[in-house]
Amino acid sequence: MIAGGRADAGGLNPLTLLTGAVVVVALTLLVDAWQFSAAVLAAVLVPALVLSGRHRRILAAAAAILLPTLLSIALINVFFYPEGREVLLAAGPVRITAEGTWFAVAMAFRLCVFVLAFLIFSFTVRAEHLTAALVARRWNPKAVYVLSAALRLAPDIASRAGDISAAQQARGLVIRGGAVSRGRALLMLLVPLVVGLLSDVDERARALEARGLGLPGPRTSLTEAPDSPAQRRFRRSALLLLLLFAVLWIGWRWLR
C-alpha cells in the first residue's frame, strides 16, 4: 500500500498511473452505461489488477469498501424506485421495478470502476515516488509536506491509538456496552492521543521552519520518480483526448 511503499510500479511515474485512473473514471462517468463500465472493468481494470501483482490486497480493500455500498445501492434502488413503470414484483411498500434494477446495476458497475481504478493507483504507487513527482511538478512545498506527512503519520497514529487503548483497558476501562460507555471509551482514547500529537507538533514546526519550509523557490527531491518522454507524451495526449471526447460527447447529446 501507498503508506508501506514496497511495491514497484515497473518504472511507471505516479502521475502516469494517476492519469490512467482519472481517464478511466472520467470516461465511465461520462458514457454512463453499464455495458461500457463492465467492458472497462473486464478489459482494463482486471488486467491492470493482475499486472499490479498485489491483486489480493487490492481486492480485499475493494471488497471492504464496495460491499456495504453495493448493498445500500441495491436496497434503495431495486426495492424502492417510485419512478419505475415496469413492476416486476410488488408486496406492501416494496416494488421491484425493471427501471430501478437497471439503475442499480449501472450504478454498481460504475462504482466498481471508480473504486478499483483509484485503489490500483494507490496500492501500486510508492509514497516517496509520489512526493518526488509532485516536487518535480513544482507543487507548493507545504502541500507536498502535508500529503507525505499524513501518509506516514496514519499508521503511526493508528498504532499509538492501539497502545493508548490497551493502556486504558489495563487500568480497568471497559469498552463494551451501551452508547454511553462506548462514548466514554472514545474520549478516554482521544484525549491522550490528541494531547500527545499536538505536543509533538511544536517541535516539528521549529525543525521545519529552521529548514526553510516557508521559503519560496524550487525544491530538489532526494529520491526521483521514474519517468520517460513516452510517459510524458502519454499523459499529455490522454488528457487531451479525454477533453476532446468530453466536448464531442456532451455536444452530441446536446444536439440530439
Binding site: 499524513a150 499536538l198 521545519l208 521552519e209
Partner: peptide
C-alpha cells in the same frame, strides 16, 4: 494552503490522520 504559517501547516497532517 500556501498562505498558512508553518506552525499551522504541521497541524494539518496530524488532523488528517486523526
Amino acid at each position: 494552503l500556501p498562505a498558512l504559517p508553518t506552525s499551522t501547516v504541521v497541524l494539518l497532517p496530524v488532523a488528517l490522520a486523526l
